[in-house]
């Protein structure tokens, strides 16, 4: 069994009487695509917030690549190799696609207290950014303002920004949400190309995408993981069917 890159133990987070995260354990192996699914209100957003460092858990611990990151901020986690996309597309709308990705490269190229040289002329930032844009299929759109990209392209751009930080772990929050069928298929195809090379946490409502991409699936219901395993096992799990899949199928 491969070494686990992310180990979450007994994570708890309550808002008043509501236990949004109620003792979650999660173990991620290097290179796997691990999907987290669950009905609305299951606590997925709260869990992601804690993993990414935007929310502090009440108790429990998160270890990333052997280091306890429970109390690190989001930027600190990002610098250690934790990249994410947001459920609602989060990009720099008033920057070009290339500038968006170049900023992600810059964030991982040492400190930015450099006051004089024009950053847009720095090949050390531009060239890697261009490579990643090509990789996600936005090479021809590099100089377009992000706000003017199609919705699907914006989602691709967000993934490009995450990849440009050369992450050890990629957290994708509903990457195909709001996409047309064709766009969605293209994204799933692109993500399956990352499989094996990239460790991915995939939070997604689209079950086709989940069952195509995931090596393992954890099912979150009312803040607890009620099942975790290979897609076939989860699909066959009676509790999961009752709590979740049954409603949709």
């Amino acid at each position: 069994m491969a070494e686990s890159i992310l180990a979450v133990q007994a994570l708890r987070k309550s808002f008043g009487a509501l236990a949004a995260t109620d003792g979650v354990d999660l173990d991620l192996r290097e290179g796997e695509t691990h999907a987290i699914i669950g009905p609305n209100g299951a606590g997925k957003t709260t869990l992601i917030g804690q993993l990414a460092g935007n929310l502090r858990p009440d108790s429990g611990s998160i270890r990333f690549a052997g280091e306890d990151i429970t109390h690190l901020s989001a930027p600190q986690r990002a610098r250690r190799g934790f990249a994410r996309s947001f459920q609602i597309t989060s990009i720099y709308r008033d920057f070009t696609a290339l500038d968006n990705v170049a900023l992600a490269v810059q964030a991982h190229a040492g400190h930015s207290f450099r006051f004089w040289r024009a950053a847009r002329e720095e090949r050390a930032l531009r060239d890697p950014a261009r490579v990643v844009l090509e990789e996600v299929g936005l090479g021809a759109r590099a100089d377009v303002l992000a706000a003017n990209l199609a919705h699907g392209e914006q989602r691709q751009l967000e993934v490009a920004m995450a990849l440009a930080t050369r992450p050890r772990l990629l957290l994708l929050d509903e990457p195909v949400a709001g996409m047309g069928l064709e766009e969605s298929e293209r994204m799933v195809q692109f993500l399956s190309g990352l499989k094996g090379r990239q460790t991915i946490i995939l939070v997604e409502h689209d079950m086709d995408a989940v069952f195509t991409l995931a090596d393992r699936i954890s099912v979150l219901v009312y803040g607890r993981i009620i099942a975790s395993g290979a897609p076939e096992e989860v699909r066959a799990n009676a509790e999961v069917r009752r709590a979740y899949l049954g409603e949709e199928a």
């Binding site: 901020s73 994410r84 709308r93």
Partner: peptide
């Protein structure tokens, strides 16, 4: 670029590090 990025989208800026 960093201060302009933080103005444009602070959550994204923190998320990339």
């Amino acid at each position: 670029r960093v201060i302009r990025a933080a103005k444009s989208n602070e959550a994204r800026t923190r998320a990339i590090g």
